[in-house]
Amino acid sequence: MFSQIFTIIFPLFAIVSIGFFYGRKHAPDMVSANQLNLDIFVPALILHVLADKSFQVDTYSQLAIGGAFVVIFSGFLAWPVAKLMGFNVKTFVPPMMFSNSGNIGLPLALFAFGEQALPAAVMLFIVENTLHFSLGMKMMDRKISLFSIVKIPMVFAVVVGLCLSVSGLVLPEVVTISIEMLGMVSIPLMLFSLGVRLTSVNLQDWKIGLVGAIICPVTGIILVLLVAPFLHLTELQYGQLLIFGILPPAVLNFMVAEKYNQQPKQVASIVLIGNLASLATIPTVLYFLL
C-alpha cells in the first residue's frame, strides 16, 4: 500500500523539487513559460479532453456540481475563520476556495488512477478555474466585467470543447494529435513552475499560512462528505472529488494577489505552507481511497 502511494506521489514532488533546486541555482524567469502554459498548453489539454469522442458532458455534470459546491462553500466556511483570527478576508478566503487543481490535481489524478481519470480531473479543473476567473476576480475588483472571462484562452477552450462534445463533431486526426501533443506539455511544466515559484516566497507570515494549511483541506473534506450523498457519482468520480477537496491553495492565488496588491506576501505564505502540508494530507487521503 505505502509503496503504491509512494509511486503515485513521487513523480509529482520529484518534478516540483527539480524546479525548486533549479530555481534556487539559476533563478529562471518563468513568466513567459507560465504565460505559454496558460495561453497554449493548458487550453490544448482541456480542448483535447473535451473534444474526445469518448467524453460525455452528462457523465460529469454531477461531479461539476460537487466541485462548484466545494469551491463556493469553502469561502463561506473560511470567512468566519478569517474574522476570528483577524485576517483580511480578501487575503485569506480566496486561497481557501481556489485550490491547486492544475499543478497538483491533474498530475495526481493521472498518476493515481490512470488516463481514464483525466476527464474527471479536467472537469474539476474547469469548474475551479472558471469560478476563479469570474467569482475570484470579482471578489478582488467589483468593477471587473464577467464577460471578459470569455477572452481567457482556458475559458475559450472550454466553450469550444463543450460545443464539439455536445454537437458530436469530431476534429480531423491530424488536428487532434497536434492538440494532444501541446496538451502533454502542460502538466510537467505546471509542476516544474510550481517548484521554481516556491523559491520566491518565505515563511515570514507563518501564522496565516499555518491556519490556511489546516482550514483548506479540512473544509474541503467536510464539504465533499456533505454533498456526495446527494450526487450520483461513480466510485472513480467520488475519489476524484475527495482529492479535489484536500488540494492545497493554487499558485494562481499569489499571482492574483500580486496583481491587485492584496497582501501578496501573506498569500505567498498561505500557498507555500499549504503546498508543503499537502505532503501529509494527500498521502493520507490516497491511503483511504486505495
Rank of each mutant, 00 (worst) to 15 (best):
F2H: 10
Q4M: 10
T7V: 09
I9Q: 09
V16Q: 04
F21D: 02
G23T: 11
I40T: 10
P43S: 05
V49N: 01
D52P: 05
S54G: 03
F55Q: 03
F55L: 07
Q56N: 14
S61A: 15
Q62V: 00
A68H: 06
G75T: 11
L77T: 04
W79Q: 08
L84Q: 14
M96D: 00
M96H: 08
F98C: 01
S99F: 03
S101V: 00
N103V: 00
G105F: 01
L106E: 09
E115N: 13
L124K: 11
N129I: 01
F133T: 09
L135N: 02
S145V: 01
P153K: 10
P153D: 08
P153M: 00
V155Q: 07
L162T: 10
C163E: 02
T176Q: 13
S178P: 00
I179G: 03
V185L: 08
I187A: 11
P188A: 10
R197Y: 11
T199D: 11
L203Q: 05
P217D: 05
T219N: 09
I222M: 08
L223K: 02
L233P: 04
L233Q: 13
E235T: 13
Q237Y: 05
P248R: 01
P249Y: 01
P249I: 04
V251A: 03
V251N: 06
V256S: 06
A257K: 07
E258A: 13
N261R: 00
K265H: 12
A280T: 09
T281F: 10
L286F: 00
